[in-house]
Design a protein around this nucleic acid. Structure first.
Length: 924
RNA sequence: GCGGAUGUGGCGAAAUUGGUAGACGCACUAGACUUAGGAUCUAGCGCCGCGAGGCAUGGGGGUUCGAGUCCCUCCAUCCGCACCA
């Protein structure tokens, strides 16, 4: 029997789309724009596996649907092509990362084109391309040339700040800057040397160089950002990471903390991702206050969210790293403290985190004065206090904080209750409660007590209300080769930007991709890595930018990728605005997704783009995991026993290549040919078959469970792959790849093809007018497709296509008036066969230019049926398919329904109540 | 510990958002057809029962004429954060 030749058809249409530039987007103010974006991939050496395209298929379906609705669609694809794996590979093989990256990109592109995506390849970007990173460097320069103006609550040009310094010094300036920035007058500013002025400006710049505590990964030879470290190990490769102080470039993202937090409210993102960003930003509202140390000139600043419990403070605790300890420790306690700090330091970061239960600490011997009641309270050192948060010191209120309570219990310190309620062990009055034992705060509720206590602090100038964020500034340098060079040179140890006309600052050649012998980054190996200015030749920065630099603005570059005068033309950007739908994994929640928002807000502040959020709506597709297959070798033999019989033997499970297993049945011949040592394998079968065991694991080469989309396409075609990935289940869910069901969707396509072909494979289409029944089948499907598109339920849409074709098939319907609209509605999902069908119906333009058909409600109202008969004097009528009808239409349809009419023969209804969209109540 | 999510046949999953639970697909069973295919078609397929019927959406309780869906509670699994004062 003749069958659908998907190989030929798919190649033909892919070539057609490419040659006719079907998907190339152009600005068209007469049409509404729609910008759909996928998180661009890092082109790894392993190529695409079937998990990668999941999100791309979803966005492709949406964009093809939007096109049918008349939207002007931008749907680009590109590559995040700077990164560690290419560099590690270069270290091992000596091959230039640019070469392997290029090869990988070519392979990825070929694989993506095979799936028939409606990407606008003209807009492709690659972050490692000098024409691209020229603008990454340019944007960095804008950060360097900006400061954060607190009055205006936005970033401003640094020139304005310099002007203010010249006129008034920095007293009146409200700008985000480093903590210890000294204050100076206009006269002092003018008297400063150039070097001194630059050093001060550096404390205000949004990209700045400073000594920072960083996550240093010795094995990778680079620093990592907080989101690249998991439990004290590097996210990539799992190498140990230590905290270390180093000179590093940073981005002042903390200046944007509040706006990043606020902006989340309006975004249509999934709640978990928003929550993760909120936690990462970590806003706490509280107060900062100063304790005077008794008999000394030392002050201790603490941050607390519970200033209302100030009268319950019975000790202060400092982080072991605190610089104050030296001054505070008394002679008697010196040895104890020194020993303690030593042990605390020797406990690695990881131990400290995982071993929360061990309580340790030491008394300094000194006392602080609580300014509220002039009580003397002991000052301790405790490693539950973190140096990196707040001021690195806490006021401990054991009665109302669990950690303070445990610490006080352990060392026998006083526990003083200041909130009414039962103070059982381990149960702490949380948010509410009336204050007691607290002098002028007595009788107040928490909120009022806080306000009054802060008032006291401010009156006496010993503190103030303060908002504290957990988020740190983002380290912006990596000691690696394969990244964007920073456009910075050093004069007298002070950083300066290179001239804009010298961009891009192209990555230099090096002999090896390793650090230099004296520990400098790989760029230290480059010859002539210097910058010439009128007054001399200066060394260039040796570090490169982190991976997230290029990916923090690529969504703008797609709009205007060829522009060599601007990073994006502002009119073009104003048309496309921002991304309407962003699809990608949830793993970038606190990395890429936060940095992109930060950069967008900055570019917005500097009037370079018209939007302040990059991604309006986002869907996080679930990962597709691998499904490994196993064979069971009888120990000491070359004999393999089928899954259900294995318990009768002593066996070892062995991973087997999933590509030679079908529906868990092993292909014996292919198995023997798989590896040399298996050529003589024998089998114990069940029912003549060898059944393999299976397990869900991550896809990886070593587990032989990688399924390449190329193989699936070779056997079933791209449309089947697309349909099947959608059919697997809800997009956002994690699920294992399992080819067991793929025959189902493959059959659907064959069945569809047979609808319009006769037994000999000749086209067989009728021009007859369709019956009401046939129309109903079609319009039911149109409706379902529309509804599913609104909530991204692609899996149920595929089901509805199957039902539609099954029903048409049983009616032997081959009418053009049905098939033509059917082709349109399935075209987002299975574009190749749809395009083929569309052209067979005599259309000479691509189906992409068709209009999505409108469903006819009147066809569907007939499905009215009654349920249940009567309750409380009401008849309820259910209208399953009439959801978008008007109230009157539903009412009319219900009243005309045969069952209802029959039921109402004897009785006249007093009132008909329509519950919108659902049920009709007829009261009698 | 805190926060978030999920829990439905042998399997992937539906359920018009409070209205016939299990659509659709896989697997399985029986049959048909045949130049024997990893092809196609027809029928069956939650559990118990010969049957009528009964029981079923992680467990228990509640609201309701009616609960997979809402409320309370417990259990399990997954994900994120984790001495953040």
């Amino acid at each position: 029997m003749a069958d659908y030749n998907f190989r030929e058809a798919e190649k033909k249409w892919q070539a057609f789309w490419e040659s006719s530039q079907t998907f190339n987007a152009k600005i068209d103010p007469s049409r509404t724009k729609f910008y759909a974006l996928d998180m661009f991939p890092y082109p790894s050496g392993a190529g695409l596996h079937v998990g990668h395209p999941l999100g791309y298929i979803a966005s492709d379906i949406v964009t093809r649907y939007k096109r049918l609705q008349g939207y002007n669609v931008l749907h680009p694809m590109g590559y995040d092509s700077f990164g560690l794996p290419a560099e590690q590979y270069a270290i091992q093989t000596g091959q230039h990362p640019a070469v392997t990256t290029e090869e990988n990109i070519n392979r990825y592109t070929q694989q993506l084109k095979n799936i028939g995506f409606a990407f606008d390849w003209e807009k492709e970007v690659r972050t490692s391309d000098p024409t691209y990173y020229k603008w990454t460097q340019w944007i960095f320069m804008q950060f360097f040339n900006s400061y954060y103006d607190k009055k205006e609550d936005k970033a401003q040009a640094i020139d304005g700040l310099m002007k203010a310094f010249r006129e008034n010094g920095n007293q009146g300036v409200e700008a985000v800057c480093d903590e210890e920035t000294p204050s100076f007058s206009a006269g002092e500013w003018k008297s400063f040397s150039e070097k001194r002025q630059q050093e001060i400006l550096l404390r205000y710049r949004l990209a700045y160089l400073a000594e920072t505590t960083v996550n240093w990964c010795a094995d990778l030879g680079t620093v990592l950002s907080n989101d690249e470290v998991k439990d004290g190990f590097s996210e990539r490769g799992g190498h140990p990471v230590e905290r270390k102080k180093m000179m590093q470039w940073s981005m002042r993202i903390t200046a944007y903390a509040e706006r990043l937090l606020k902006g989340l409210e309006k975004l249509e993102w999934s709640e978990p991702i928003k929550e993760m960003q909120r936690n990462w930003i970590g806003k706490s509202i509280g107060a900062e206050m100063v304790f005077q140390v008794k008999d000394q000139e030392v002050k201790i600043k603490v941050f607390t969210t519970r200033i209302d419990t100030i009268y319950g403070t019975t000790y202060l605790a400092l982080a072991p790293e605190s610089e104050l300890i030296d001054q505070l420790v008394t002679k008697e306690q010196k040895e104890t403290i020194e020993n303690y700090i030593l042990t605390a330091k020797n406990r690695s970061e990881r131990e400290r985190l995982s071993d929360v239960k061990t309580i340790s600490g030491a008394f300094t011997g000194s006392y602080a004065i609580n300014p509220f009641n002039n009580e003397e309270i002991p000052i301790w050192v405790a490693d539950y206090v973190l140096a990196g948060y707040g001021t690195g010191a806490v006021m401990a209120v054991p009665a109302h904080d669990e950690r303070d309570y445990n610490f006080a219990q352990h060392f026998g310190l006083e526990i003083r209750q200041v909130i009414e309620g039962n103070l059982d062990q381990g149960s702490f009055p949380g948010k509410g409660g009336t204050i007691m034992n607290s002098d002028f705060l007595n009788g107040l509720e928490m909120q009022d007590a806080m306000v009054k206590a802060i008032g006291f602090l401010e009156e006496n100038q010993i503190g103030k209300g303060k908002i504290q964020y957990r988020m740190r500034d983002a380290i912006f340098t990596r000691q690696r080769y394969w990244g964007e060079p920073l456009p910075v040179y050093f004069k007298e140890g002070v950083p300066y930007l290179i001239d804009e006309k010298d961009l891009p600052l192209v990555l230099p050649e090096v002999d090896k991709y390793l650090p230099t012998e004296d520990g400098a980054p790989p760029l230290g190996r480059a010859k002539n890595w210097t910058y010439k200015t009128d007054d001399g030749e200066y060394p260039l920065e040796l570090s490169t930018m982190p991976g997230w630099a290029g990916s923090s603005w690529y969504f703008f570059r797609y709009m205007d990728p060829g522009n060599n005068r601007e990073f994006v033309n502002k009119d073009i950007q104003a048309y496309w605005e921002a991304v309407d739908l962003y699809i990608g994994g949830a793993e970038h929640a606190t990395g890429h997704l936060l940095y992109s928002r930060f950069w967008t807000k900055f570019l917005y502040d500097r009037d370079l783009v018209t939007v302040n959020e990059p991604f309006k709506k986002m869907i996080n597709q679930g990962m597709i995991q691998g499904r490994s297959n196993f064979v069971y070798r009888i120990k000491g033999t070359n004999q393999y026993v089928s899954y259900h019989l294995k318990d009768s033997y002593e066996t070892t499970a062995m991973h087997v290549d999933v590509n030679i297993v079908y529906n868990d049945h092993l292909d014996l011949d292919k198995f023997k040919a798989w590896r040399d040592d298996l050529a003589g394998a024998t089998f114990i079968l069940e029912d003549g078959k060898y059944i393999c065991g299976a397990e869900v694991e991550k896809m990886s080469k070593s587990k032989y469970n990688i399924v390449s989309p190329d193989d699936v396409i070779e056997r079933y075609g791209a449309d089947t792959l697309r349909l099947y990935e959608m059919f697997l289940g809800p997009l956002e869910q994690f699920k294992p790849w399992n080819t067991n069901g793929i025959d189902g969707v493959f059959k659907f396509l064959k069945k569809l093809w047979r609808l319009y072909h006769d037994q000999d494979g000749k086209l067989d289409v009728s021009e007859e007018t369709p019956s009401r029944e046939e129309l109903k089948i079609l319009h039911k499907t149109i409706k379902k497709t529309e509804e599913d598109m609104n909530d991204y339920s692609f899996n149920t849409s595929v089901s509805s296509f199957m039902i539609c074709v099954n029903e048409l098939s049983s009616l032997k319907c081959n009418k053009k008036a049905i098939l033509e609209p059917l082709a349109i509605i399935i075209s987002p999902y299975a574009p190749h066969i749809a395009e083929e069908l569309w052209s067979l119906m005599g259309n000479d333009r691509s189906i992409v230019n068709a209009s999505f058909p409108q469903f006819k409600a009147d066809l569907l109202v007939e499905d009215v049926h009654e349920y249940p008969v009567s309750i409380n004097g009401k008849v309820r009528v259910k209208l399953p398919l009439s959801i978008s009808l008007s109230k009157e239409e539903i009412e009319k349809a219900a009243m005309e329904n045969k069952v209802v009419q029959k039921w109402l023969e004897a009785k006249t209804p007093k009132k008909v109540i329509v519950v919108p969209k659902k049920i009709v109540n007829i009261v009698i």
